[in-house]
Design a protein around this nucleic acid. Structure first.
Lengths: 205, 205, 205, 205
DNA sequence: TATTAAACGAGACGGTACGTCACGTCTTTGC
DNA sequence: GCAAAGACGTGACGTACCGTCTCGTTTAATA
């Protein structure tokens, strides 16, 4: 009998209808509501209905500016993308990458970005624009720091230059797998895995 | 969740009777309808309601045996995949795994099950039962053949016994990554990647 | 529809075993469960499903002996009818009828029969067999004692013989009205009402 | 948990848009469908599902305006009440009441209202909101005209003021009894019965 | 005494209806 | 003329019973 998804907006900051111009408050209220819902309820709690309720916005207003769920979701994700993990490089490829990955996992766990990214992957499976964005824009962009890490390691001879892309894909695939199956809670496994990806103890360079 | 109307009669004089048996026709009709719907409409057209309609089955019958959409999907997936990806083992771990993976990719590409599986992953990001099924039931079950492959390789000394699970997760992570970003079209990359995963040229055994 | 029992090729033996006898335990368990459910949950909690569960009986067993919900109701009611109030006749029609009615009300209030009867009336509004049972079987049967009361009063000159049926219907109508609107809690009103029905103070005899 | 308006004291009125108005077509389509179903199928064929189907309305629309089956019944009944018989008062209580009752019976027989009312009584036996509506809202409202008839008769000395309520309950009880047992076909009995209720020949005034 | 048909418990079956939720479109009203 | 509020038809959700239908077991009358 309760309103479980997206509470009523209650007293405080009720916006009032702004009239004829596109309302900046409306836009940011919608984006904020969408982000908060993703944080609190995850992708399942992310519905246009709930966002409208939370933002005190009309559903048609949302549909007018973000014609599909994917559009709204992408807008939220893009608005959040400023935070990035940065790691001090020590020259030890495996150690650096382990620390970088630990940072990434905790970032995914603690920030809306984790839920948002899971949502993006989910949305992409519908086959629309989200897929293109995920593959052609998001992936290369997000991978750049790690690619550089590998590149510098290869440059100083710590890694064959050939398998760089293989390592990259194995590393990102493993991370996705863990994120998408909600198993980011044991970063102790990382040294072993990443050691293996990078060439492993007792295995060649 | 309780039995609110008319308690079960508990212990005492219970006579025993097996009751009616599960109807094989009903089960296969449901599975067939589910499969056909997946083929025709994809994950979006896959609803319990639609399956029941198509199978001329009652909804409760479906819920009795497949408590969630994910369960039903899993049953369809399993019934289909076992018919498809089977590999003759040669004793060469990398070669065997490459051929198994090629089979998996072509199955995902050519068969509705691929799209359907992407749907399941998307569904799981909502955090409900689909996630549990995906992680606790689907993954272990589907990985069994590959796990055995590794286990047998380790048994004959072709692989250290330690990193078996690491290899497994790297392998499945890579495959998911390719599936979810719709990049299953270049299986030529597989020997290189799988070689690296299994210990790579000039590494390990 | 099949005529599976008919066929008997005349002449020969065509003997049929009589099979097991109707189980007395089953019958009484079902009736007891039905009564208890009516007491505890009222008409709303009274479903064949729930009765079967409570009685540890199979649904077909119930349907075999009580083909409709109304039949089962009626059986419950009749099984309880031995408790029906019997009033010592004093010769004062109004006083006797008041005491009889008080007994009826408390019977309706305290016994499952009240709930059962309300359920039967409800069921009868669907227009099926329940209506026939209610009108043609239940009503005349239940009214017999009161009809006799009136008849004896008329016989001794305490009531015109003409309006007997009118009085009966007024009396039963009033009781139904009170029962169906759940207002059996003020039997103090009975002397006034019944006095009026029977001819009232300062009126008639 | 209340505070649904936010009330903001400060500025002017803090008025909020009222939103779209209730659709008159939807409302009347639902009521018409409900009435027709009652006429054609009776209480048994009356389900929210069927009404929605027939009215080409959504179930949520129905539940929005008529939260329970009882409410919808009541609405159907009330929507029909304009046809209710109005009787020219002659000053002869019995004759007036007989004519009023004849009108009521033919109204019950010929209009959906009869079936609707029977359904309401049935529903009320479940003990939910329908019972409260029937007893506290429907009964007093429907009885008002007859109560007035008695009151005016008492005022002009044609009836003792005391037994007014008794007469009322006898009258309504008798009518219910006839309706609920589907015996509205012999209105010739009415003069006798109502004469008796109002004081009978040779009794009272 | 052995056979056999019926009644039993259990419960699966195809269905209907329930009441809720979210979808995306539409209309009304106020700024 | 945009935006809020929100009603609308649609349709899936998961649950409760309906009444019918097998199942194997138990039981008692017949032969």
């Amino acid at each position: 009998m309760d309103n479980q998804t997206g509470d009523a907006p209650e007293g405080a900051g009720r916006r009032v209808s702004s009239g004829a111009k596109r309302s900046v408050e409306a836009e940011s209220a919608v984006l904020a509501a969408a982000r908060d819902l993703l944080v609190e309820k995850g992708w399942a709690g992310f519905s246009i209905e709930a966002v409208a309720r939370r933002a005190s916005a009309g559903k048609p207003t949302i549909y007018r500016w973000w014609p599909s769920k994917a559009d709204l979701f992408l807008a939220v994700y893009i608005a959040e993308k400023d935070d990035v993990v940065v790691v001090q490089e020590t020259g030890d490829l495996v150690a650096d990458l382990v620390r970088y990955t630990e940072g990434l996992w905790s970032f995914w766990r603690d920030h809306p970005a984790g839920a948002a990214f899971r949502g993006l992957v989910a949305e992409a499976q519908g086959g629309g624009a989200a897929l293109d964005i995920l593959r052609d824009k998001f992936l290369p962009e997000r991978l750049a720091p790690v690619r550089d890490l590998f590149a510098r390691a290869a440059a100083r001879g710590a890694l064959d230059v050939g398998p760089t892309d293989i390592c990259l894909e194995l590393w990102i695939g493993f991370n996705w797998l863990r994120l998408l199956t909600d198993r980011l809670s044991d970063p102790e496994c990382l040294p072993g895995v990443i050691g293996w990806v990078c060439g492993g103890p007792g295995r060649g360079r």
